[in-house]
Structure formats: structure tokens, C-alpha cells
């Protein structure tokens, strides 16, 4: 889900059933000074790690979903309608556009194909994530155990969940389906509950708290910046620079959605051309 498009808009060993074995934590301590003072063993389940990692997303999603719930009821849809859109579609920009198109009387098939086209970029997320997991695990990411429950956890692969999961892999964390479930569930629950609260509360509930509203509104840009810092390396610089410039150009010349698609494709193509 993208804030721009809607305009206002994170161990123990894992069983093979749930993905890849968590590496010894000593590896992480060598890689990162923040683990030097950590306990020798950790017993926290990866599902809980995922839930904890979802916290910034949870805090970022809730006010956006709240806004969506308000916008839906203002557009004449019921609270149940707003809840159903968030539960079944789970893509913020698409949902806001659905309100505009449906309330303007656009044909159902036109509305559906427009919204489907907006989310085409999600096709790249799963393979990119599994590729990163495979590189890290010596190209074992393709085994059945690592994907057994993908039909379920992949539903939660939004822009922010993908970014957070990729950042965790880039920092040395092994891929885990349980982690993905925790990360995705936190974000999904926040999105759906925010919608319901917004639909029932109506407009103006956060308008009396401008500082809180502003801080929550900055959560997603702050998350993306932190994720960008976590993957930053000399090797990635050309990809990042090209993607950023293409996003600016595409947004200014065409639209926000075009800017995002152009940025991702231009950055990925720049990465493809390097040796």
C-alpha cells in the first residue's frame, strides 16, 4: 500500500516445515555490533519476531485505513462495505480509487481492470524476496518447505511488508514462513481494524490531534528511509540512484502510480546491466 498513491495515505531454530533454519546467532553478532551484548540464546518464536517487526507498519497503516473508512462512509458506502473492501482487496491505493470509480457509476469491469492494473507491481515482490532468501541460504530457497504455506502468507506481501521482510534478509536474518506470517498478520489486522474504526467513527476524529496525526502520517516515509539505510551498500548505490531519479521523473511527468512502476523497473534494469 502506498501512502503517496492514497494521497493523504521484524530465534530460534525453525523446523523445516516452517521455512529455513535460523542461523546461529553468533553469526549475527559478528555481523552487527548490536548483537554483542545480546543473550547467548534467544527463545522468541519467529512469528513473534514478525509481529514485532510489523509495529511501524501497524502504526503507519492504522491512520491511513482510518481515513479510508471515513472516506468510504462519506462516499455513501456502508461500514460493512468499507470492511469488505479492506478485507478482500487489501491494497490501499486501489481501495481509494475503487470508492471514486464506483461512486461515479463506472462499469464494474472497467473499475476491476483499472484496480488490477494498479497492483501489477506486486508480481515482482515474491520472486525478489525468494531470490534474496535463496542467495542467503546458498540457493536452497526453492525447496518445498520454504514455500509450503506461501499461498497464505503471500497474501500479506504489500509494499511495506515486502520492504520490511527484504530489509530483515539483507541484515542477515534467515527466511522464515512463521516470521512472514507474523509480519503480514500485524499489518493486515491494522489495516482492517483501522478501516472499521474509521467507518464507525466518521470524519474529524484525528483532526483534533494534529501533532499525532502528523506523526502517524510520517510513519511510512520514516520506515522506507530506515529500510533504505539497512540495505545501503556501494554495490546497491547505482540501483538506488536510478530508481529514485526515475520515480521523481515519472511522478512529475505522468502520475504517482507510473512513477512507482518506472522507478522499480529502471532500478532493476540498472542492476541487471551491472557485472
Amino acid at each position: 500500500m502506498n501512502r503517496l498513491l492514497v494521497t493523504r495515505v521484524q530465534s530460534h531454530a525453525l523446523s523445516s516445515r516452517s521455512g529455513f533454519a535460523q542461523p546461529p546467532r553468533t553469526v549475527d553478532r559478528v555481523r552487527s555490533p548490536r548483537y554483542l551484548s545480546a543473550p547467548m540464546t534467544r527463545t522468541r518464536p519467529p512469528f513473534v519476531d514478525g509481529l514485532i517487526a510489523s509495529l511501524p507498519i501497524v502504526l503507519g497503516y492504522f491512520p491511513i485505513a482510518f481515513s479510508f473508512g471515513v472516506a468510504a462512509t462519506r462516499a455513501g458506502f456502508s461500514q460493512i462495505d468499507a470492511f469488505a473492501l479492506s478485507l478482500v482487496i487489501y491494497a490501499g491505493a486501489s481501495q481509494f480509487l475503487a470508492l471514486a470509480l464506483l461512486s461515479s457509476g463506472a462499469p464494474v469491469l472497467v473499475v476491476a481492470f483499472t484496480l488490477i492494473a494498479m497492483n501489477l507491481r506486486h508480481v515482482l515482490y515474491g520472486p525478489a524476496l525468494m531470490r534474496q532468501a535463496g542467495d542467503q541460504a546458498g540457493n536452497q530457497a526453492g525447496d518445498d518447505a520454504g514455500r509450503r504455506h506461501a499461498w497464505a502468507w503471500a497474501w500479506g506481501l504489500t509494499d511495506e511488508v515486502f520492504g520490511q521482510a527484504l530489509g530483515a534478509l539483507a541484515r542477515g536474518q534467515r527466511f522464515s514462513q512463521a516470521y512472514m506470517f507474523g509480519l503480514g498478520l500485524g499489518a493486515y489486522a491494522s489495516w482492517v481494524s483501522g478501516t472499521v474504526v474509521g467507518a464507525y467513527a466518521g470524519g474529524g476524529a484525528l483532526e483534533g490531534w494534529p501533532a499525532l496525526n502528523a506523526g502517524l502520517g510520517f510513519m511510512l516515509p520514516a520506515l522506507f528511509l530506515a529500510l533504505l539505510l539497512s540495505i545501503l551498500s556501494r554495490r546497491q548505490l547505482p540501483v538506488i540512484a536510478v530508481a529514485g531519479l526515475a520515480t521523481v521523473a515519472g511522478t512529475l511527468a505522468l502520475s504517482a502510480t507510473s512513477g512507482i512502476l518506472l522507478g522499480m523497473l529502471a532500478g532493476a534494469v540498472a542492476g541487471t546491466m551491472r557485472r
Partner: peptide
């Protein structure tokens, strides 16, 4: 393979720029 390996970094950079631009 190289394309997919670069997609993640490109996506995060893109999403950051897209989210900060309106501000």
C-alpha cells in the same frame, strides 16, 4: 536473476521517494 536481485533495492528506493515527494 540479476533483475530480481535488484528489484528489492529498487522497490525500497522507489517507495521512499514516492512517499516523501508529497511532503
Amino acid at each position: 536473476g540479476r533483475f530480481l536481485s535488484s528489484t528489492g533495492s529498487a522497490a525500497i528506493a522507489t517507495l521512499f521517494v514516492a512517499s516523501i515527494l508529497p511532503a
